[in-house]
Nucleic acid binder design. Sequence first.
RNA 1: GUGCCCAUAGCUCAAUGGCAGAGCGCCUGACUGUGGCUCAGGAGGUUGAGGGUUCGAGACCGUCUGGGCACCCCA
Length: 460
Amino acid sequence: MPAITPRPMSGFPELLPEQQLVFNRCLDIVRRTFERYGFTPIETPAVERKEVLTSKGGNEKEIYALSRLAAAPGESAETEFALHFDLTVPLARYVAQHKDKLVFPFRRYQIQKVWRGERPQSGRYRELYQCDIDVIGRGSVSLMADAEIPSVIYHLFREMDIGKFVVRINNRRLLQGFFDLAGVPAVCKTDVLRTVDAWEKIGRDAVAQALVNKIGLSETIAKQVLEFLASSRGKSTDEVLSDLRAQVADAQPTDASPGSDDFARGVHELQTVIAGMRSLGVPEEYFELDLSIARGLDYYTGTVYETRLVAHPDLGSICSGGRYDDLASYFTDEKLPGVGISIGLSRLVLRLLDAGVLKPGPATPAAVLVTTMDPSHMQDYLKIAAELRARGIATEVFLEKGRLGDQLKYASRKGFRFALIAGEAEFAAGQVKVKNLATAVESAVPREEVAPRLAEMVQS
RNA sequence: GUGCCCAUAGCUCAAUGGCAGAGCGCCUGACUGUGGCUCAGGAGGUUGAGGGUUCGAGACCGUCUGGGCACCCCA
């Protein structure tokens, strides 16, 4: 009997090799796309000081702290560190700490695991990968950065081949301005945004009820808010924009409704960002102006994004973010505005594997298995493998003893595309047999041409 | 933290309170120079744990542990 029975740890996903390869391919696409837009990588420690992590009023119950298993007498096993639960807080600390050495606008990407001490459920993990990009300015950041972000997302998910998706976009300033104009009390605006954000989940009627009963809006104002938020449904982007411009013209700024400035500015921002997205090549059918997108987090001040898979709305938002006025107010007095987005890659890839949208392939990164039918020729097998690797062909040599049948079985189970077979007969003839494992077709190749020929075959 | 549901072989699941099983997977052989297919065989279980009811519990009852789902929050 073994001393310890291995058990899965709920919320800490781990993958089989064929799944891990799919996951890593997605990671590669994310990284390549980020770099194609000039985002530069950074990595921060898995832990931060507790004071840093709790600075934004993060939910302390969901933060894992670091402690030692034992402490010397009189010492505490506690440490001042805890695991980061997102990458935004560490980024804020990092930028504030290094701002005099960084070049602004600072465009960084960060792909790391984060930890959340919550009860796991489907698609909710306690350890997960986040992939973040942000553009951070000193004092200001161009609105065109807001347009670049959805372009990155578009190209990234297209390459990942995960089916049709829609980046939904809105502007918080516009919403805030509208709320002012509609007479929503200032203290309620955050609550209204949060409630509105649940529209998709609980439906229009429930939102209406919550606005009146929980937040205390008057029936009239609640109705006005709801009608506005729903007014983008089923309309083209340009229709919504022209409706909004008409409303800007109607809204006369008064002391009673100071929001008209914000409203007008929000509409203008949205318009500018959408024009930028179009120039960057985001097709019309992959984005959507949706006035009901609010995002629950309160630090967003302008553009906000959410991305959904059309065929899998149950996944929720697979990628979301927005613009904020001040990234690091807890760590520096200097104003550092920015815009960014975060992809929850663990949720995305694991759920897509589960749903069969992404299909696991081979359980090996190698394309070729060199079989070793005749151990007395082991040195030849190793040389062939070295030649293949020198040409960049991922190659494994079957190093154990085994019948050829067993070696081919190993090859097909692991999903190699080609097996090289050579025994006494082939060596005598100066040849090597290349077997395509999918088609079972074998071809004899002169020994010295093996590497170039396979390079071609692996390509196609 | 609150509520609901679940726990039998590696996986998916059967078994009226009466001998713990099937399919898939895995291993071996048919096959010492050819994988997938087929056939034959094999391994694998303290029925999550420990109590109670009973002549008898995988099943019924309560306790613990683990897991899933919803709320909360968010990726």
